[in-house]
Simulated scan of single mutants.
Amino acid sequence: METCKVAVVGGGLAGLYTAQALNASGVDVVLLEARERLGGRILTADETGLPAEDGFDLGPSWYWPLMQPAMATLVGELGLAAFGQNSEGAVVFERMSREKPQRYLPAALDQQSMRLAGGTAAAICALAGKLPAERVRLGTMVTAMDLAENGVRLTLKTGDESAEVLHAELVVAALPPRLLEATLTFAPPQEPATAARWRNTPTWMAPHAKFFAIYDKPFWRTDGLSGTAQSMVGPLVEIHDATTASGKAALFGFLGVGADQRATLGEQVLKQACLAQLARLFGPEALEPRATLLKDWAADSLTATAADRAGGGHPVPGNPRWVSGPWESRLLLAASETSESEPGYLAGAVIAAKRAVAEIRSKMDRE
């Protein structure tokens, strides 16, 4: 049986931060990720939809340095380049289907949204580079955790459907609580109140879908538009300039169509409706993109559960005690949703990961 001091389940921002920080402290750590890539809900893709080092953020894209110093500090520590979300030009507002969209010049922003050059996956790549490759297991899903006398036995399922067992003294679950509750079995079971809390915690990004239209040039800017738009008509309800730091031009928007309706309509119909809306808002050039991308996170089984299809609110800060009963000494949660501040944001993932690392170091100091 393979063994380690700490097993980190989930290779998104929180899991990677946790694993590399523990590794830097000399802790024997193994990172387990069900996907064949790292990043989790962070996915930077090229115009074909494949992961890329310089592309478009199909998941989270922004952070706010003054309001989220944890993320700003991480960007600085990793030596990453950042740039401001384009806000120069007018904002378009679409109130009714029978009214022409209106343009407004917004007031100056006090807190500008920032993006990473190369995409948010730049942070993932930088953190992954701090881990020994042999301690990262991709395509490895944890299906069960059993408490043992001196740790936790994790049942792993790999791509060939074979089952393996890993023994860890401590486990950090860096995946959303709702997904953890839905996809893993525990022996003994989690206490009912704990399981209910996990199940009732909304998963950030899980209900949403993002549409991208990629162009040869940002034509809206020459027309005096920022690329920002809000619509009460749809199908996109919020639209922004997604042009990369390297100059790849794009617009993106969040769909206001629910997950079940998206599945019924199908990707092609949705894309056509989105392009028609962009043409209403930004002009006929919007009908001729180089490529389009649609990422429906509700259809991603490694992000969303059936409960996420109905939507729901943003995760909110709460009691920091996410594990109770016999599991409390062996299992820690570190997903962004579990953060005591900025839950459901990139900064929340960093804060939650730092908390888990501090708890583990404290446990080891007491041993």
Rank of each mutant, 00 (worst) to 15 (best):
A90K: 14
L156V: 04
E88F: 00
D54Y: 01
Y63P: 08
A173P: 00
Y63N: 10
G59C: 09
G151V: 06
F83Y: 15
L147S: 05
P65S: 08
L127A: 14
L156F: 01
G119F: 01
I124G: 05
E94I: 11
L138W: 05
V171F: 01
D54I: 05
V152F: 01
I124D: 04
A163L: 14
E53K: 12
T158E: 15
G119C: 08
E169K: 12
V75E: 03
R103G: 10
G129M: 13
R153D: 10
P51L: 11
P65T: 06
L116E: 06
L166M: 08
V172H: 06
G39S: 10
S162V: 09
A117T: 11
A133Q: 14
V152Q: 07
L166C: 04
Q102Y: 00
G89V: 07
E77C: 03
F93V: 15
E53C: 10
Q85E: 15
S87V: 10
A107D: 13
V136P: 03
A72R: 06
A163R: 12
G84N: 08
P60K: 09
Y63A: 08
A123V: 02
S97A: 15
D54S: 14
K130Y: 02
Q85A: 12
E161P: 04
A148Q: 11
E164Y: 04
A108M: 12
R98T: 14
A107S: 13
P60M: 09
G79A: 05
G118C: 11
Q85R: 13
Y63M: 10
R115Q: 15
A168P: 05
K130T: 11
I42C: 09
V142Y: 02
L154N: 06
P69Y: 01
S97V: 15
N86D: 04
V165F: 06
A163I: 10
D57M: 05
A123F: 01
L66S: 10
A168R: 06
